[in-house]
Design a binder for these strands. Structure first.
Lengths: 237, 237
DNA sequence: CATCAAATTAACCATTTGGTTCATTAACCC
DNA sequence: GGGTTAATGAACCAAATGGTTAATTTGATG
């Protein structure tokens, strides 16, 4: 007790904290929501605990109460972000489509999905700046993401069996390609626009780009004979 | 003068700063070099002026003397980084190669060039986290980067004229594709490895990936008839 | 060689930042 | 309904951080 000038501990003090309700879950969720936004906007060291606290309906103390420290909060944000993004992919059912259409749909969905979730992208960017230091210590991350490769693999297998796709392509690599194009489109939008003009960012250009990304992936995996056919029939040459 | 216990201003004081030489250019360059490394490692807000100063042979004051403030230092780093990366591309002469080979070489070079310069990649990532705020205020950036599109365009035109490439592809978009794959390979290495395993990072896998990236771009731009030929003759199906 | 601007240093400072202490209230349980 | 624990708020703190002051030295110039 160093500041003796403030409040001499009298029970007469006004009503500093009356009428608040306990609600741990909603408080936690609120912190996580605000923290996700702040960290995704300003980075781990750029974001401020004070700001996060101020934007929550709760006090700063609660952040430490629930998440230990800033790093703990960041880890929670990271995991929640991954979980939520993969959660959003569960809506996607492609089993009823023939392989080529299924692969097209997957690419298109992934591309749009990334565009729809810039916060996710930014969190991943930030974690990559940190060289994956925090991802290293997450056990759940791998299992959360496993379905992503699986989805590609299933479609690829079907395409192989149907004789459309060429052999020897790694599903992991295929996923890498799809991710790369989808991710870069969001992650590097600012710099690319500023350096080369923002003509690729108009709604129409993005639609066209979506088509071209699909086209690029399909041309890559289709067998020569089907590529020729595909090009002639389904795409504009 | 608040600390009166230190040095009473006597001329007898030891030799606090003797034997230093003026060398503005080298000091500036040194600061820039260290700052580039630090900022690329820890970000704009993650990097510490004190640390940068400590790692320089000069004092912290000089950073402010030459660069004004942290933001000024960052801007200098950003511009120097862009300049240096584009400088490194000047070695690349492709005019003597036929269009297909030229395009392959360009893709391969770009892919490897990105791999060779992770610091550049990280600075761009960081600037994108900041939504290009600082890039906006740079006049030189556009002109520094203009040749990148031009190189693609020249080769594309030659391929068009020679009848190899299909029409209607935007050189800008083509550059975007090449950049996306080259950039993502470095920028997202950490997260991708941790989430999906690091099998794509072995030296052999990276070589294979280089080939596949070339293949993907070429399949995308070649005319149907040449695609079929190309696939059969020059690539493994 | 006196002068003066540019270059450089060491010490200093105000503010911000992540993190804590302590007291108080809400809710649960015999 | 008394006691116990979880939840919460306000004030507080030490350390770190970006930035500054003021003095000192170098080197060029007339």
């Amino acid at each position: 007790m160093k500041n003796s000038e403030v409040e001499t501990g009298s029970p007469v003090k006004a009503n500093p904290r009356q009428g608040w309700k306990q609600n741990p879950e909603s408080v936690k969720a609120d912190i996580l929501r605000v923290a996700t936004k702040e960290i995704s906007d300003y980075g781990l060291s750029g974001s401020r605990i004070n700001v996060i606290a101020a934007k929550c309906k709760t006090s700063k103390r609660m952040i430490y109460y629930y998440f230990g420290d800033k790093e703990g909060l960041y880890r929670a944000v990271l995991e929640a972000t991954y979980r939520s993004i993969r959660e959003g992919e569960k809506d996607l059912y492609l089993d009823h489509l023939p392989p080529i259409e299924a692969m097209e749909s997957l690419v298109e969905f992934t591309f749009r999905h990334h565009r729809r979730h810039p916060d996710f992208i930014r969190i991943i960017m930030i974690e990559n700046i940190h060289q994956g230091e925090y991802l290293k210590h997450s056990d759940t991350i791998k299992e959360v993401n496993a379905p992503a490769i699986n989805r590609v693999e299933v479609i690829y297998r079907r395409g192989l069996e149907a004789g459309y796709f060429r052999e020897g392509i790694s599903p992991l690599e295929l996923h890498w390609f799809i991710s790369a194009l989808s991710f870069f489109n969001v992650s590097n939008r600012a710099s690319f626009s500023l350096v080369f003009g923002d003509s690729l960012n108009s709604e129409e250009s993005q639609e066209l780009l979506t088509t071209h990304v699909k086209e690029m992936i399909l041309r890559f995996i289709l067998k020569p004979e089907h590529t020729c056919k595909y090009i002639g029939v389904r795409l504009t040459a």
